[in-house]
Design a protein around this nucleic acid. Structure first.
Lengths: 209, 209, 209, 209
DNA sequence: GATGAATGAGCCTTCATTCAT
DNA sequence: CATGAATGAAGGCTCATTCAT
């Protein structure tokens, strides 16, 4: 958690700093990202960073939380409609929203993508806090409900099903970000959505009873 | 590509060096792996490394190729039996062999896993050379053939299908390696195989016509 | 000397600050002690410290004086009984009181111990002011008187005698503080006193006429 | 232990480096001594130091060992004469040799003096290895023997006696080094020796039977 | 009178690579 | 062909002090 000193900063400076940090952490893994560069690019003395944050990890955690909040914000308006959608539609919406978020916030998405790839499990837990299994839990509940509705076969293993859906989601993000250099975002998005639908076609069959 | 000087080395020295490099690259990402440590642990002069290899990347590429060869070697005896197996069985065998390979060669598997997670696309292409799409191609052909046999629905998009199967494969590797600390490998393997079958149950349904 | 602003502070704040400073200076040498940490732990703005004190040294000096006063306070009630004691008894009491003081005020004792070990002589003089020779003077007078009483041999060099007694005193303090981690303080104290008596046995013989 | 690379260095460079390190460590405690300054003053790249030594502590340990060897070398020629000397004479010789050594090698003596004052006990043990109690043991044996000869009273506690002698020794070193700025070393030495004799007068009485 | 943001030098350590021998 | 000494930039982090508000 940032120190109070950080929150006292003028809005402009705070933003500049966060933006710079997002930039750095979106380009590099946690370990390879450089506090020095962040300080320099943000036009802030190296020592100052340590007045705002405990250490590198603290800064990262904060940036990571921001990314999470932004995504949550992005999803929140849409969450209440879930009840009207069936199993596959929900997943589709999730994948699509994920892509849209990544297209609109490529750096945040890249940041998250880097995080997912970190291999140090303890580090990941430290950063995420409890929430690390939330995503899986969400999908597990989704599948359980769909089983009750008869949308999903009862022969499906819930945990493994959730695992598949989660992994395909991150794969999509990966794919999306790698292709992002294309400037023709619109056409690009169409293509991505097209692939999502093709993927969902398989998933639907895979899970249906 | 290593310089000629490397190939002229006595077998023993070559092996020691490669083993040490594998060890280092299996523990760290490319950037974080340390040439210094490799030289030291291999008992080789730092300067010598640069007489055997152009630079760090060259060494890595060589190590990476070796890992690839080892895996290929591992699969090769089994490849000719493919014709007797149906679509899902082939995939199953591939996943299972992958797990077995990882259990038997954890360092090589970890090395490959680290590579997959590298985010610098250009770097990845540079390392893999053409082969980067080979894996996908294999699965695409597999799917195409299965479509002809009627094992797989013609409505399935081949590329997307291959993409799914590939990604699930790497997910399995990741999962396997993270759980590897368990000492009770046998039980562990059973559990992994169990999950593979549950996963394949979904995939089979997803692809079948 | 603290600035007037410091003395104007509410008692509570003053005490908190001093307590925190004692804590820090008891754990570290002057140079390694951190003004930053003192400010933080005392809940005082860093800038404020510089409004209360000239600089780090000024703060230290004040803390050091306090430690001295506390010890003096500790001894003062006992001082008037000196006349009834003979030479060795006085020294014994001084050693014992020192040990007791250290056991009851371990931080102050540690602080003093750190100070004694400082190697920068100028620094020490600056901190102690005139008082640096007071301790020696006290022992010198003691010896002189004991010489007159016939308790101490006239062949003893007074200054050297005082030097020995002083140094053994600090050695005892050092020893006491290093052993302080033991929780069984009572037994620990017994052992210390036992050693003091063994030491005094030697001293008595050494000085007696 | 320094790395092999250090021992391979040309004699001149090695010496320059060691001399510089001695200089730094004689002026500062271990913690406050600066690797940066050593590198700079020795005209060596910062990185090079780490080719020669594992880390700061490794360098320090080496310097410390050198100081120990030098002192041992200094004493060794004299050690075999011990048998002809009585208890007090041996101690006197030891004190005197210590003073002479300090006068001739003030930096080494200062280095040792700094070490003695380190408060981190684990650090001290790490640096000294087993030898940490050797000095005390030497004096204990000395006392035991003197007891048998009748030179020392059997009522004296051996350990406490050794402790006193050791502590007075370090006190003398401290005193010697602090006065060292005087240029008139000869007169200075006379004065020191005079004090030693006065001190020994007391010790002799203190221990004798 | 109080605040705390800002600073830049300094700390120890690791790094990939070069090059004279 | 092998060696390993040399390098200087970069890494994260701490520090005592200043000064505008």
């Amino acid at each position: 958690m940032p120190k109070q000193t950080f929150f006292n900063l003028p809005e402009e400076k705070k933003e500049k700093l966060i933006e710079t940090a997002i930039d750095e952490f979106s380009k590099q893994s946690f370990k390879n990202a450089s506090i020095n560069k962040i300080a320099e690019n943000a036009g802030v003395a190296k020592g100052s960073l340590y007045q705002y944050f405990e250490d590198k990890k603290d800064l990262y955690k904060h940036i990571f939380d921001i990314a999470g909040s932004k995504k949550q914000e992005y999803l929140i308006g849409w969450m209440h409609q879930l009840q009207h959608l069936d199993f596959i539609e929900i997943i589709r919406e999730l994948y699509v929203k994920g892509i849209e978020f990544a297209l609109e916030n490529p750096k945040l998405a890249a940041l998250a993508n880097h995080f997912i790839k970190e291999s140090d499990v303890k580090f990941k837990e430290e950063i995420m806090g409890v929430g690390i299994e939330k995503s899986n839990l969400f999908f597990e509940e989704l599948i359980e409900n769909a089983k009750k509705n008869g949308e999903v076969s009862k022969e499906i293993d819930t945990k493994v099903g959730a695992y598949i859906i989660t992994n395909l989601n991150t794969s999509i993000m990966d794919y999306t970000l790698n292709k992002m250099e294309y400037e023709d975002i619109l056409k690009h998005k169409e293509m991505l959505l097209d692939n999502v639908d093709k993927m969902l076609f398989i998933i639907r069959n895979g899970f249906k009873s």
